[in-house]
Design a protein around this nucleic acid. Structure first.
Lengths: 343, 343
DNA sequence: TGGGAGTATGAATCTCCGG
DNA sequence: GCCGGAGATTCATACTCCC
């Protein structure tokens, strides 16, 4: 199915591939005799090799269909996630983060032989090291009480009403992912109208959340019973309103306003003296929007960095106008005023 | 050095290999200060193949020197941990858990292009699938206020007085690990008297904590300056008493902040003597957060009830620390202090 | 001595657009 | 594809300094 998709056609991929189950089973033969795996390196190599080959095949196709600015998410546990990560890197993907889904309510360890396996790992990767990927930084920050979103996410398992069940009342799919997890994934790296691909759709959480958030989706699923349920599930979703699904705009996405415009329209007339917050330097605004401070001359940013001897400087927040009475007003507030009026 | 060790001779291995960070250029904070990056020669590899070959070589030797019932811990980040995990599996190790070190105070992401990289990953593996490994289940449970220890650990970075510094006052080693991390690792899978190997000793945290907890250790370090400092550091450690380092069986109770956390972070260090308000009993704090008072051993609550021959006891308000000068401070006030600071 | 303000720093794969 | 310039971007903790 993946091979039928055109190259560079999807904005984001979420993949929840099968775990390496044959490896778990390889400990015992059908007659329950124990396989001496330690001395049987060839056999165990072929097990991993089969999983690696499978992984490599679908990941290669994913890379082909991914846009150059697109990103991929892959989820796994310690049985398979190291194989996934290694293959991602070997295929040229560029890992951006590994993200930990900390389960609020994991299954306990019944035998008391290990730590409670209370998390799964997601790998987030760009198509390559030069890719300019989308990351909705402000949206993620807003979601987290206005501090940067960390790489560890605390989210409950999918239970209760959200869990799809068959007619017999039993869970339809063994590893249905919670919608909260997919919502954060999709909000972090896509925009409304983007196309999201899930090559292992399963119970259809990716499709449901994509539709809810106004993203397009492509889902691939081999098992008919899952595919049918996922399709029904996605179609039953009512998409949210446009304003509800928009991502918080970053400053970079706001329209550019050259400083010269403020000079031209008289908000900061030529000849105005600018100073920094501590009033250490004083610069004069030129009619062309340039700044002069001693021998330093150029844009508000360039002069700011030169006087401070700093590698860079955002002149909008560095320079201030001294108002009558002596109070300081930062340049950025003039810009905000103009941008607000333009709406 | 590893090749000189006899086979099947160590009970546990902790390995903190170079991460292969692949940093390019420099990074400035928003305040224009320069981030002190890990650019040391020992972290430079030409490509993944070179890193994999290096990894395979030292891991093979580790497997040879590890006892059949021994386990290995390997720590890494997304740059290298997938390579580590894959090589571990390919060499026949049997992964028991991947454990997440959630950093209380990670470095932020300054450019807003990714999630804050707020964790590192430890892989815990047995020598093979048939190994009968040691896991001190009750000790880990005690440390976590009598609920199973999960696979995500919340521990602060190594800063302040714990951080080794050179004569110039700068950090001696770029990646010194916190003692609280090693303490949990060592308590989870070894017994007093066991031999612990660290093939990348660095600043010597493994050696220091092993000695403190009454375990033997072997450390290997290539850089003379690190090796010298690590040796001095380990030798300056006073081992805890036998009863403080023994691993305990226990059960019961569950406040929100485990007493073990106060032990780990040094507010109530192992070996501390606790007493009740009337100073009728005296109990010693174990490194796993258990308490010993005569033959009574277990959580602060259990020991409190046993010595009083009472059906139950809230250890938080029963036990006190005797301060220099003789005043008593109730345990609950330490908990309150931590909880208040966490707000 | 205590508190407030300011500064330093931690395993970091850390920009984007237009000419 | 290269280059120059605009301008966006930080959290928790510990320590220093000064009043």
């Amino acid at each position: 199915m993946l091979r039928q998709l055109p190259p560079a056609s999807v904005h984001a991929i979420f993949a929840d591939p099968p775990y390496n189950l044959q490896l778990k089973g390889s400990l015992h033969r059908p007659d329950n005799s124990l396989v001496d795996a330690v001395d049987d390196e060839w056999d165990r190599f072929t097990d991993f090799a089969a999983y690696d080959a499978f992984t490599r095949e679908w990941l290669s196709e994913c890379r082909r269909v991914l846009r150059r600015d697109g990103t991929i998410w892959v989820i796994g546990a310690y049985h398979n996630v190291f194989r996934l990560g290694t293959q991602l890197q070997d295929l040229g993907f560029w890992v951006l983060n590994d993200v930990i889904w900390r389960k609020a309510n994991p299954m306990p360890n019944f035998r008391g032989r290990r730590f409670t396996n209370a998390h799964e790992t997601l790998i987030w990767a760009a198509r390559g090291p030069e890719s300019r990927h989308r990351f909705n930084y402000q949206a993620m920050k807003s979601l987290n009480d206005d501090v940067q979103m960390r790489s560890d996410w605390y989210i409950p398992l999918c239970t209760g009403h959200e869990r799809l069940r068959g007619e017999d009342g039993r869970k339809l799919h063994p590893t249905q992912k919670p919608e909260a997890l997919l919502q954060r994934v999709i909000l972090s790296c896509t925009a409304p109208g983007d196309v999201i691909l899930d090559p292992f759709l399963g119970s259809g959480t990716t499709a449901a959340v994509a539709r809810k958030l106004g993203r397009h989706f492509i889902g691939i699923e081999r098992e008919t019973v899952y595919a049918t349920a996922a399709h029904q599930r996605a179609m039953s979703i009512t998409p949210l309103s446009e304003e509800a699904v928009a991502v918080a705009p970053s400053k970079k996405e706001q329209p550019r306003l050259p400083f010269g415009t403020l000079v031209e329209n008289g908000m900061v007339p030529p000849g105005t003296a600018l100073t920094d917050r501590q009033r250490r330097w004083r610069a004069i605004v030129g009619a062309d929007g340039s700044l002069t401070c001693g021998r330093a001359r150029g844009s508000i940013h360039k002069v700011g960095s030169e006087v401070q001897e700093a590698p860079s400087c955002n002149g909008w927040v560095f320079w201030h106008v001294e108002l009558p009475g002596g109070a300081l007003r930062v340049l950025d507030s003039y810009r905000a005023e103009v941008l607000a009026a333009a709406k």
